[in-house]
Amino acid sequence: MRKSTSMLSSWLTLIAAVVLVSGTSASADTGKITANPANGKIIFNEGKGDVPACMSCHGENALGNDDMGSPRLANIGYVYLVKQLSDFAADRRVPSGMGMVMNGFAKELSEQDHRDVAAFVDSLPRKFEPSDLKVLKEDGHEVGKTYLGKLLAHSGVEGKVASCYSCHGFNGRGADPMFPAIGNQKYVYLVNQLKSWRDGTRSNDPVVGGVNMMQAVAKTLTDDDIYNVAAYLSSAPPVNVRDGVLIDNQTVLKEIVVR
């Protein structure tokens, strides 16, 4: 585990440079990112043209929906959100199931709209809304064991995979702007994405040294590993009891020129 953790750590500086320039646009006058959260709010709540309101799938507070398999968008990271919308629009990420509508929606929105929506949802008040694992299990979903997921998230597995902590921070609270928050993400979405990374149907992860980071990690995970870590992360509180710090994932937003 030390070797794989060290390898991931050595990638961080390189990935920072890649992620920071992905899907962003800077003002020629200031060098800062330009975004209009007010326009993003309108698109999120009301839609635009043929694109329906984002809240119809992601919830009025952008916290996601396990029944629909839709992810939490609130507070997960501006840069990551813009990149995903850009990748949907360019068909670099093509989801299956209900998520397949995202490609068409992203194409209908401009690059500026992408930035505006991302700025809006990333500036929403933080709310803790864990997935209801008991209800999901009753509904027939395979649900893992949170205590086993905690071990994987925090310590990884020696000789197999580094901890989620290595990149995504304590309890997956995010490492803005490099890595999105995955803590308190919806359980169904986490399971689906880890399986998609593993089977290669999702491949828009950062590539460093010829290695797709998330695909490489996911290929080491069994179904049980995925269920366990998703169970833990979907219900993990964002505050590290050791430092009391709550990451707001708005580092980039603080540098945005609001129009």
Rank of each mutant, 00 (worst) to 15 (best):
M1G: 12
T5D: 12
T5H: 12
A17L: 13
A17K: 10
G23N: 10
S25R: 14
S25Y: 09
G31T: 05
A35T: 09
N36M: 06
N36G: 01
N39E: 14
G40L: 03
F44C: 00
F44I: 00
G47V: 02
G49W: 00
M68H: 01
A74M: 04
N75P: 03
N75T: 08
G77T: 07
G77F: 05
V79M: 12
V82N: 09
D87H: 10
F88N: 00
R93M: 14
P95E: 14
G97K: 07
M98T: 12
M100Q: 13
V101A: 06
N103L: 08
N103T: 15
L109P: 01
V117Y: 01
D132K: 04
L136H: 07
H141Q: 11
E142R: 10
E142D: 13
G144E: 00
K145N: 14
Y147A: 14
Y147M: 06
Y147L: 07
K150C: 02
L151E: 13
A153K: 10
K160F: 01
H168L: 08
H168T: 10
G169I: 05
F170C: 00
D176H: 04
I182C: 04
Q185A: 14
Q193R: 13
L194W: 08
R202I: 02
V207G: 00
V211P: 02
N212F: 10
M213V: 15
M213Q: 13
A216G: 07
V217D: 00
L221D: 00
D225G: 03
Y227W: 15
Y227M: 13
N228E: 01
A231K: 08
L233R: 04
S235R: 10
A236H: 04
D243A: 06
L246I: 10
N249I: 12
K254S: 14
